[in-house]
Design a protein around this nucleic acid. Structure first.
Lengths: 226, 226
DNA sequence: GTCATTACTAACTAGTTAGTCAACAATCTC
DNA sequence: GAGATTGTTGACTAACTAGTTAGTAATGAC
């Protein structure tokens, strides 16, 4: 319904586009500079929108940040179609779950940084969100389903906590990515190099699967229970 | 118009104590609020020292931050006496290495937060430090020594990269701690609870050791090499 | 004791920064 | 087309913040 007359050129109103432009610029700004380092003026400038419009739509810097956080979390969880894996043979399903989790992290560095930023702030924004929390139920269920089936089929070890397994799958990928800058420097390796990333991916998959497929308390070793 | 007469109570000078007080207060401030969130005025107030003294000793906010960073890294690496583990039987040595790494992380939450903060800032301060980098050599050497010996003795799998192993050992503990706040909320668990931490510790040790002790390419499975 | 050095202080400043005010103008409702 | 609603703007402000200036006084070297 646009282009109604010849050349209007008057200030066209486009709330959705403005909102989206603000959100895009805000994402870049928050991800690059953290919550305290981010500048509202810079977001206004980058999105080519009047600063007050930001307050009109989002209320405050913190609420804008939360909006960015919610969007990036929901984007991730809608892309991550783990439900498809539930029907696969446990070993195969778990392999794919681990590698796809890894791939999603690699593909979304913004998410990694925002998670770090949010934890620096004691997750106080996340806690005031109602939309993010439910997103995690599905992933945990998938892990639980594959785990249980693998155990009854006798291919996975017993006594594995799904939450612990989730944290390990994520943690093995997360640390490598979130701490890339300090690690690359300290270890004299370019961890962002494509080859390195692929190598890491394989290592992570192998570690998780060798843990799962090894019969439970294999080591009847010394106590070490202090 | 002070009480300059009778009681002398003159301002005693104590450079080392002042320096230390500033550093202590700065550590708390930077760890709690991040680099951008930290306030120099607050550090001055908390250390009960004139603000200019901070600039007198440390030059700038960034240099003060670097001083805090260097101190916490060196503290960790002097406490972490991994050299002692090099003579142990590989499995036992590695077990202890993993659990002591975990314990050090748990005991030093400040370090975890500073590492996250530093990575948010692309490790730019760390890179300008000359003292931190060498500290890492020893730990990697220990891993390498235990790994090699375990491999020649036939108890550890072949083709394990020491850097990957280091990142896994650290990552399994780090993610659990650094992302405690978001994870506790998202997973409905209090990850700071003592029982949880001990359980996690055991899980991490088991995961690393089952990976190491499983014979190399156990799964002659489908390709999955896309 | 004198002098240079170093520790320490109080008051100030130039530049930011999140957020607001008051108004204008498309667009929607009827 | 009148009137309410909502999108959009530029100028403004009060509070803050890293860093400075200019000075005083304790201490060490000789």
């Amino acid at each position: 319904m646009e282009l109604n007359v010849a050349v209007p050129s008057k200030i066209t109103r486009n709330p959705e586009a403005s909102r989206a432009k603000i959100l895009d610029a805000a994402r870049i700004e928050f991800v690059s500079n953290g919550l305290n380092g981010a500048r509202v003026d810079r977001i206004a400038e980058q999105s080519r929108v009047n600063k007050n419009l930001i307050y009109h739509y989002f209320g405050s810097k913190d609420e804008l940040y939360l909006a960015v956080l919610e969007r990036i979390y929901t984007d991730l969880r809608t892309k991550q179609q783990d439900e498809d894996l539930r029907g696969l043979p446990p070993v195969e399903g778990m392999k794919r779950l681990v590698s796809s989790t890894f791939d999603h992290f690699v593909a979304t560095p913004d998410l990694i940084r925002l998670m770090s930023i949010e934890n620096i702030h004691y997750a106080q924004h996340l806690k005031s969100s109602s939309v993010i929390k439910p997103l995690y139920r599905g992933l945990l269920d998938t892990i639980q389903i594959l785990l249980k089936r693998g155990q009854t089929e006798g291919v996975f070890r017993a006594n594995v906590d799904a939450v612990d397994l989730y944290m390990s799958i994520s943690g093995l990928a997360y640390f490598f990515l979130s701490n890339q800058h300090t690690l690359s420097w300290l270890l004299d390796r370019d961890l962002a190099a494509r080859r390195r990333v692929l190598k890491r991916r394989q290592h992570v998959v192998e570690m998780v699967l060798s843990y799962l497929t090894q019969n439970s308390p294999a080591e009847a070793d010394g106590a070490d229970t202090e």
